[in-house]
Protein backbone atom coordinates (compact mmCIF):
# COMPACT_ATOMS: atom_id res chain seq x y z
CA UNK A 1 0.00 0.00 0.00
CA UNK A 2 1.20 3.49 -0.81
CA UNK A 3 2.21 5.79 2.02
CA UNK A 4 0.52 9.15 2.27
CA UNK A 5 1.69 12.04 4.39
CA UNK A 6 -1.44 12.24 6.56
CA UNK A 7 -1.37 8.47 7.10
CA UNK A 8 1.98 8.90 8.85
CA UNK A 9 0.24 10.49 11.81
CA UNK A 10 -1.07 8.59 14.80
CA UNK A 11 -4.38 6.69 14.16
CA UNK A 12 -6.13 8.79 16.81
CA UNK A 13 -5.31 11.94 14.81
CA UNK A 14 -6.73 10.40 11.62
CA UNK A 15 -9.80 9.19 13.49
CA UNK A 16 -10.57 12.59 15.05
CA UNK A 17 -10.22 14.29 11.67
CA UNK A 18 -12.45 11.89 9.75
CA UNK A 19 -15.10 11.58 12.48
CA UNK A 20 -15.43 15.36 12.78
CA UNK A 21 -15.52 15.79 9.01
CA UNK A 22 -18.23 13.13 8.60
CA UNK A 23 -20.35 14.70 11.33
CA UNK A 24 -19.95 18.24 10.00
CA UNK A 25 -20.57 17.13 6.41
CA UNK A 26 -23.89 15.60 7.37
CA UNK A 27 -24.96 18.34 9.78
CA UNK A 28 -24.16 21.47 7.81
CA UNK A 29 -26.48 22.23 4.91
CA UNK A 30 -25.35 25.81 4.42
CA UNK A 31 -24.38 26.27 0.74
CA UNK A 32 -21.20 28.27 1.41
CA UNK A 33 -19.94 25.70 3.90
CA UNK A 34 -20.96 22.96 1.51
CA UNK A 35 -18.93 24.49 -1.33
CA UNK A 36 -15.86 24.67 0.92
CA UNK A 37 -16.40 21.07 2.00
CA UNK A 38 -16.89 19.95 -1.60
CA UNK A 39 -13.69 21.69 -2.72
CA UNK A 40 -11.75 20.17 0.17
CA UNK A 41 -12.99 16.65 -0.50
CA UNK A 42 -12.45 16.88 -4.27
CA UNK A 43 -8.91 18.27 -3.93
CA UNK A 44 -7.84 15.71 -1.34
CA UNK A 45 -9.53 12.83 -3.16
CA UNK A 46 -7.74 13.88 -6.36
CA UNK A 47 -4.39 14.04 -4.55
CA UNK A 48 -4.84 10.49 -3.27
CA UNK A 49 -6.46 8.86 -6.27
CA UNK A 50 -4.80 10.67 -9.21
CA UNK A 51 -5.81 8.70 -12.32
CA UNK A 52 -8.74 6.80 -10.88
CA UNK A 53 -10.33 10.02 -9.72
CA UNK A 54 -12.06 10.90 -12.99
CA UNK A 55 -14.00 7.65 -13.37
CA UNK A 56 -15.09 7.88 -9.74
CA UNK A 57 -16.15 11.51 -10.12
CA UNK A 58 -18.30 10.70 -13.16
CA UNK A 59 -20.12 7.95 -11.27
CA UNK A 60 -20.73 10.30 -8.33
CA UNK A 61 -22.01 12.99 -10.71
CA UNK A 62 -24.69 10.65 -12.06
CA UNK A 63 -25.65 9.76 -8.49
CA UNK A 64 -25.97 13.46 -7.68
CA UNK A 65 -28.18 14.03 -10.73
CA UNK A 66 -30.40 11.09 -9.78
CA UNK A 67 -30.81 12.20 -6.16
CA UNK A 68 -31.59 15.78 -7.23
CA UNK A 69 -34.32 14.79 -9.66
CA UNK A 70 -35.91 12.14 -7.45
CA UNK A 71 -36.39 14.33 -4.40
CA UNK A 72 -39.31 16.48 -5.64
CA UNK A 73 -41.19 13.27 -6.50
CA UNK A 74 -41.01 12.13 -2.88
CA UNK A 75 -41.27 15.52 -1.25
CA UNK A 76 -44.02 17.85 -2.42
CA UNK A 77 -43.58 20.65 0.09
CA UNK A 78 -42.44 24.01 -1.24
CA UNK A 79 -44.02 27.27 -2.41
CA UNK A 80 -42.99 27.66 -6.04
CA UNK A 81 -44.53 24.87 -8.11
CA UNK A 82 -42.68 24.20 -11.36
CA UNK A 83 -45.18 21.73 -12.86
CA UNK A 84 -47.40 18.84 -11.86
CA UNK A 85 -46.50 15.20 -12.32
CA UNK A 86 -48.89 12.32 -11.48
CA UNK A 87 -51.11 14.99 -9.95
CA UNK A 88 -48.45 15.94 -7.44
CA UNK A 89 -46.63 19.29 -7.44
CA UNK A 90 -42.96 19.32 -8.46
CA UNK A 91 -41.49 22.26 -6.54
CA UNK A 92 -38.36 24.34 -6.96
CA UNK A 93 -37.55 24.21 -3.25
CA UNK A 94 -37.66 20.43 -3.19
CA UNK A 95 -35.43 20.35 -6.28
CA UNK A 96 -32.86 22.62 -4.61
CA UNK A 97 -33.06 20.60 -1.41
CA UNK A 98 -32.56 17.40 -3.38
CA UNK A 99 -29.44 18.92 -4.93
CA UNK A 100 -28.09 19.87 -1.50
CA UNK A 101 -28.79 16.41 -0.05
CA UNK A 102 -27.18 14.83 -3.09
CA UNK A 103 -24.13 17.06 -2.67
CA UNK A 104 -23.85 16.08 0.99
CA UNK A 105 -24.03 12.40 0.08
CA UNK A 106 -21.41 12.75 -2.67
CA UNK A 107 -19.08 14.73 -0.38
CA UNK A 108 -19.39 12.06 2.32
CA UNK A 109 -18.56 9.38 -0.26
CA UNK A 110 -15.51 11.39 -1.41
CA UNK A 111 -14.24 11.69 2.16
CA UNK A 112 -14.90 7.99 2.71
CA UNK A 113 -12.75 7.25 -0.30
CA UNK A 114 -9.94 9.24 1.31
CA UNK A 115 -10.64 7.46 4.61
CA UNK A 116 -10.22 4.08 2.94
CA UNK A 117 -6.84 5.17 1.56
CA UNK A 118 -5.58 6.62 4.84
CA UNK A 119 -7.08 4.35 7.47
CA UNK A 120 -5.50 0.97 6.78
CA UNK A 121 -6.43 -2.26 8.53
CA UNK A 122 -3.52 -2.17 10.96
CA UNK A 123 -4.64 1.23 12.25
CA UNK A 124 -8.14 -0.09 12.85
CA UNK A 125 -6.86 -3.15 14.71
CA UNK A 126 -4.52 -0.89 16.70
CA UNK A 127 -7.39 1.32 17.86
CA UNK A 128 -9.52 -1.69 18.78
CA UNK A 129 -6.74 -3.47 20.65
CA UNK A 130 -6.64 -0.94 23.46
CA UNK A 131 -10.22 -1.42 24.66
CA UNK A 132 -11.44 -4.59 22.92
CA UNK A 133 -8.40 -6.88 22.74
CA UNK A 134 -10.33 -10.07 21.91
CA UNK A 135 -12.17 -8.50 18.98
CA UNK A 136 -8.91 -6.99 17.74
CA UNK A 137 -7.28 -10.42 17.87
CA UNK A 138 -10.18 -11.95 15.93
CA UNK A 139 -9.94 -9.18 13.31
CA UNK A 140 -6.23 -9.67 12.75
CA UNK A 141 -6.77 -13.46 12.54
CA UNK A 142 -9.48 -12.98 9.90
CA UNK A 143 -7.25 -10.73 7.84
CA UNK A 144 -4.69 -13.51 7.73
CA UNK A 145 -7.20 -16.33 7.20
CA UNK A 146 -9.01 -14.88 4.20
CA UNK A 147 -6.07 -15.00 1.75
CA UNK A 148 -5.08 -18.44 3.00
CA UNK A 149 -8.65 -19.72 2.49
CA UNK A 150 -8.71 -18.27 -0.98
CA UNK A 151 -5.47 -20.08 -1.83
CA UNK A 152 -6.83 -23.33 -0.42
CA UNK A 153 -10.10 -22.92 -2.32
CA UNK A 154 -8.06 -22.49 -5.51
CA UNK A 155 -6.19 -25.74 -4.77
CA UNK A 156 -9.40 -27.68 -4.10
CA UNK A 157 -11.06 -26.29 -7.22
CA UNK A 158 -7.94 -27.16 -9.24
CA UNK A 159 -7.97 -30.74 -7.99
CA UNK A 160 -11.65 -31.08 -8.91
CA UNK A 161 -11.04 -29.62 -12.37
CA UNK A 162 -8.44 -32.32 -12.92
CA UNK A 163 -11.07 -35.04 -12.43
CA UNK A 164 -13.52 -33.24 -14.73
CA UNK A 165 -15.64 -31.57 -12.05
CA UNK A 166 -14.44 -28.01 -12.47
CA UNK A 167 -16.22 -24.86 -11.44
CA UNK A 168 -16.82 -23.87 -15.09
CA UNK A 169 -19.62 -26.37 -15.62
CA UNK A 170 -22.08 -26.31 -18.52
CA UNK A 171 -25.07 -24.91 -16.63
CA UNK A 172 -25.30 -22.25 -13.96
CA UNK A 173 -26.97 -24.63 -11.53
CA UNK A 174 -24.23 -27.22 -12.03
CA UNK A 175 -21.49 -24.73 -11.46
CA UNK A 176 -23.08 -23.48 -8.24
CA UNK A 177 -23.41 -27.08 -7.08
CA UNK A 178 -19.73 -27.66 -7.75
CA UNK A 179 -18.91 -24.45 -5.90
CA UNK A 180 -20.82 -25.58 -2.82
CA UNK A 181 -18.85 -28.84 -2.84
CA UNK A 182 -15.59 -26.87 -2.92
CA UNK A 183 -16.92 -24.66 -0.12
CA UNK A 184 -17.78 -27.77 1.93
CA UNK A 185 -14.29 -29.20 1.57
CA UNK A 186 -12.85 -25.82 2.49
CA UNK A 187 -15.03 -25.61 5.61
CA UNK A 188 -13.93 -29.05 6.84
CA UNK A 189 -10.28 -28.22 6.34
CA UNK A 190 -10.62 -24.79 7.92
CA UNK A 191 -12.44 -26.03 11.01
CA UNK A 192 -9.97 -28.85 11.68
CA UNK A 193 -7.15 -26.36 11.31
CA UNK A 194 -8.85 -23.89 13.61
CA UNK A 195 -8.88 -26.39 16.45
CA UNK A 196 -5.18 -27.05 15.97
CA UNK A 197 -4.51 -23.31 16.04
CA UNK A 198 -6.63 -22.90 19.16
CA UNK A 199 -4.82 -25.72 20.96
CA UNK A 200 -1.49 -24.25 19.96
CA UNK A 201 -2.54 -20.86 21.34
CA UNK A 202 -3.61 -22.47 24.59
CA UNK A 203 -0.36 -24.40 24.85
CA UNK A 204 1.53 -21.13 24.54
CA UNK A 205 -0.43 -19.66 27.44
CA UNK A 206 -3.33 -17.82 25.86
CA UNK A 207 -5.80 -16.67 28.50
CA UNK A 208 -3.50 -17.05 31.49
CA UNK A 209 -2.37 -13.46 31.75
CA UNK A 210 -3.56 -10.25 30.18
CA UNK A 211 -2.38 -10.23 26.58
CA UNK A 212 -0.04 -7.46 25.56
CA UNK A 213 -0.44 -5.93 22.13
CA UNK A 214 2.06 -4.96 19.48
CA UNK A 215 2.15 -1.18 19.38
CA UNK A 216 3.30 0.25 16.10
CA UNK A 217 2.16 3.81 16.68
CA UNK A 218 3.38 6.19 19.31
CA UNK A 219 2.15 9.68 20.05
CA UNK A 220 4.76 12.26 19.13
CA UNK A 221 4.91 16.01 19.57
CA UNK A 222 3.42 16.78 16.15
CA UNK A 223 0.50 14.39 16.85
CA UNK A 224 -0.35 16.21 20.07
CA UNK A 225 0.01 19.56 18.31
CA UNK A 226 -2.38 18.53 15.56
CA UNK A 227 -4.90 17.07 18.04
CA UNK A 228 -4.98 20.31 20.04
CA UNK A 229 -5.34 22.40 16.88
CA UNK A 230 -8.13 20.18 15.56
CA UNK A 231 -10.03 20.21 18.86
CA UNK A 232 -9.88 24.00 18.88
CA UNK A 233 -11.18 24.22 15.31
CA UNK A 234 -13.90 21.65 15.98
CA UNK A 235 -14.98 23.65 19.04
CA UNK A 236 -15.25 26.89 17.02
CA UNK A 237 -17.24 25.20 14.23
CA UNK A 238 -19.54 23.50 16.75
CA UNK A 239 -20.26 26.81 18.47
CA UNK A 240 -21.04 28.38 15.11
CA UNK A 241 -23.48 25.54 14.32
CA UNK A 242 -25.18 25.69 17.72
CA UNK A 243 -25.67 29.45 17.52
CA UNK A 244 -27.35 29.02 14.15
CA UNK A 245 -24.74 30.68 11.96
CA UNK A 246 -24.56 27.71 9.60
CA UNK A 247 -28.31 27.23 9.47
CA UNK A 248 -30.03 26.66 6.13
CA UNK A 249 -33.60 25.48 5.45
CA UNK A 250 -34.90 24.68 1.98
CA UNK A 251 -38.47 23.41 2.32
CA UNK A 252 -41.06 24.89 2.31
CA UNK A 253 -39.13 28.17 1.94
CA UNK A 254 -35.46 28.73 1.19
CA UNK A 255 -33.95 30.37 4.26
CA UNK A 256 -30.19 30.62 4.59
CA UNK A 257 -28.17 32.32 7.34
CA UNK A 258 -26.05 35.23 6.11
CA UNK A 259 -22.32 35.00 6.67
CA UNK A 260 -20.89 38.40 7.64
CA UNK A 261 -18.04 39.78 9.78
CA UNK A 262 -19.68 38.71 13.03
CA UNK A 263 -19.75 35.01 12.24
CA UNK A 264 -17.03 34.53 9.63
CA UNK A 265 -14.74 32.98 12.25
CA UNK A 266 -16.71 29.71 12.22
CA UNK A 267 -16.45 29.47 8.46
CA UNK A 268 -12.70 30.18 8.48
CA UNK A 269 -12.19 27.51 11.17
CA UNK A 270 -14.15 25.05 9.04
CA UNK A 271 -11.99 25.81 5.99
CA UNK A 272 -8.76 25.38 7.99
CA UNK A 273 -10.02 22.05 9.39
CA UNK A 274 -10.81 20.82 5.87
CA UNK A 275 -7.43 21.95 4.60
CA UNK A 276 -5.36 20.12 7.25
CA UNK A 277 -4.69 16.89 5.29
CA UNK A 278 -4.21 18.83 2.05
CA UNK A 279 -1.64 21.14 3.64
CA UNK A 280 0.18 18.18 5.19
CA UNK A 281 0.21 16.44 1.81
CA UNK A 282 1.62 19.52 0.06
CA UNK A 283 4.21 20.11 2.80
CA UNK A 284 5.46 16.54 2.44
CA UNK A 285 5.67 16.89 -1.36
CA UNK A 286 7.59 20.18 -1.09
CA UNK A 287 10.07 18.91 1.49
CA UNK A 288 10.58 15.77 -0.63
CA UNK A 289 11.34 17.75 -3.76
CA UNK A 290 13.69 20.05 -1.80
CA UNK A 291 15.68 17.09 -0.54
CA UNK A 292 15.70 15.63 -4.05
CA UNK A 293 17.00 18.94 -5.34
CA UNK A 294 19.84 18.91 -2.79
CA UNK A 295 21.11 15.60 -4.16
Amino acid sequence: MKQYAFAGYHPVVNLIFFLSIFCFSVLIQHPVYLVANGLGSVIYCFMLEKKRFLSKAIKLFYLLLFLTLINPLLNTRGDSVLFRIFGRPYTLEALVYGFVVGCIFVVVLMWLDCYNQIFARDKFVFLFSSFMPTIALILSMIFRLIPSFQDKAGQIAGARTAIGKGLEASSKKDSIKQATIVLGALVSWALENSVVTGDSMKARGYGIKKRSTFKMYHMTFRDWLLIIAMCLLIWIVTVSIVTGNARAEFVPKIDIAVIDESNILGFIAYCVLLAIPILIHIKEKVSWSISEYKI
Binding site: M141, L145, A179, L183, L186, L191, T197, K202
Partner: peptide
Protein backbone atom coordinates in the same frame (compact mmCIF):
# COMPACT_ATOMS: atom_id res chain seq x y z
CA UNK B 1 -8.82 -20.07 22.42
CA UNK B 2 -10.68 -22.74 20.42
CA UNK B 3 -13.93 -20.78 20.39
CA UNK B 4 -12.09 -17.64 19.38
CA UNK B 5 -10.48 -19.34 16.41
CA UNK B 6 -13.74 -20.95 15.33
CA UNK B 7 -15.44 -17.53 15.27
CA UNK B 8 -12.54 -16.12 13.25
CA UNK B 9 -12.71 -19.05 10.81
CA UNK B 10 -16.46 -18.69 10.31
CA UNK B 11 -16.10 -14.96 9.60
CA UNK B 12 -13.23 -15.54 7.20
CA UNK B 13 -15.29 -18.20 5.38
CA UNK B 14 -18.25 -15.84 5.11
CA UNK B 15 -16.08 -13.10 3.64
CA UNK B 16 -13.79 -15.24 1.52
CA UNK B 17 -16.46 -17.72 0.40
CA UNK B 18 -17.37 -15.36 -2.39
CA UNK B 19 -14.30 -16.12 -4.50
CA UNK B 20 -15.21 -19.80 -4.71
CA UNK B 21 -18.50 -19.16 -6.45
CA UNK B 22 -18.10 -18.19 -10.10
Amino acid sequence: ARELVVVAVLCALAVGGRVVIP
